[in-house]
Amino acid sequence: MDDDYEVFVHFVDADGEHQSALNADHSPPQPTSAWSGAVSYDHTISVPPGTPAGQYSVRVGLYQNHSPWDRVPLAQGEGVTVDDQLRYTVGRFTVSTDSSCEDSGPAGQDPGNFSPTFSEEFNSGLDTSVWNDHIWYESSNPTTNYKVEGGALKIWPQRDASGRFFNRTIDTDGKYYQRYGFFEMEAKLPIGKGAWPAFWLFNHIDDRRPEIDVMEAYPGGGPDSGWSDSNLHPTAFAATVWPHGASNDAAGHRTLQTADLSQGFHKYGVKWEPNKLTFYFDGQEFYSLDVAMSDPMYIILDLWFGSASGDPDDSTPTGESNAFEVNYVRAWQFR
């Protein structure tokens, strides 16, 4: 092919509605410009709890990984049909009313190796017995810039009463901790100058600050930074490990180039073993590091501003239409 396209995988219900919580957009393991003849690879997603029962069609295709994000016309094979959005229907599956999705395990893993310990599906508001809405060294900003709606937590850029953009942190500090296991978030990221969405494991113990950054993105960096495109849409994210806190040297870091992470939901995960960390994107391993970290940690979901994303300004889209949208957060222990 003449370009390196991204793959989209849509799941459409019987009423023709695209189920965005099941999005599986991804970069193929072999770039499309190198495809020749028949191409085959595995790509796994997990059906989240709360998915309505019924029959779903699987519709796939290719799209440009840059503006204007056009979809690519393809030749149809036997048994394949195309709709008016250049989505090619390649199969169907059924979700039954007694499906137990919580036990399906982390994306890309053998579920038999894990037992679920934490599952936040955001189906009934923010549970304050589990979540705080500010980090421990700050007070909660009273300006509303987050809510739970439609089965997702949404955190968006907003100016407060003083006119400034402010950080929002949603965490389980003092309420839920875990040592070792697998931690996974499915989310869609915001765009714009200054925006800095992240998913961490963290603790503040005496003077120690162990930290595992499962996902940090900087859409405001721009194309020269390697973090985003010219429209300030996130096209990369990073995983970083800080055994002794971010004020000390990192043990390791890896940046992964991706499709536009604001266009659909993706899974970000880490497998935390006693002497090793392995990071995953949509169920595919992209980084591993031999490191020992034994402190139990809590979960942080946040939308901050600054760092490699720059300072927010009048060009930064505000409001819930530009949210860091988290479909779920889950954790498992090793069996």
Rank of each mutant, 00 (worst) to 15 (best):
V130C: 10
S315C: 03
D133P: 07
P274A: 06
E17D: 13
L232Q: 15
V130F: 09
P312H: 13
W69E: 09
P111W: 06
P111G: 08
E184A: 09
I212T: 10
G306K: 13
D206K: 14
T255L: 04
P28C: 09
I155M: 11
Q30M: 15
N275C: 04
G245A: 05
F199G: 11
A236S: 06
S96M: 10
Y268T: 05
G194A: 00
I300A: 07
T316F: 13
G91M: 06
S33W: 01
V214E: 09
R179D: 00
S294Q: 10
W131K: 07
F237A: 01
K267F: 00
G174K: 00
S262Y: 01
F305N: 07
E120C: 03
G310M: 03
F237K: 04
G150M: 07
V12S: 05
E102C: 09
T117N: 00
G91D: 12
E120D: 12
A259W: 14
T51E: 09
A251N: 06
A34F: 11
S309Q: 06
I45F: 15
E78C: 05
A198L: 13
Y180P: 09
N23P: 01
Q55P: 00
G61A: 06
G79I: 07
G77F: 06
G125L: 07
G192S: 10
N231F: 08
L303S: 01
F114C: 05
Y268D: 02
S33F: 05
M215S: 02
A238N: 14
I155T: 09
G310L: 03
V270C: 08
G50D: 07
F305R: 04
N322W: 13
S228Y: 10
W69M: 08
E102H: 11
A292T: 14
I155E: 02
R159S: 08
A246P: 13
G112I: 02
G264F: 00
S124W: 02
V80M: 05
N123L: 02
S288H: 03
G194H: 12
H10P: 00
E273V: 04
T144R: 15
Q257F: 03
S67R: 12
G245S: 10
S139K: 03
A250I: 01
N141P: 00
T143N: 05
M293I: 14
T117D: 03
F237I: 10
N322L: 06
M185F: 02
A152L: 11
R92V: 02
H244N: 15
G54T: 08
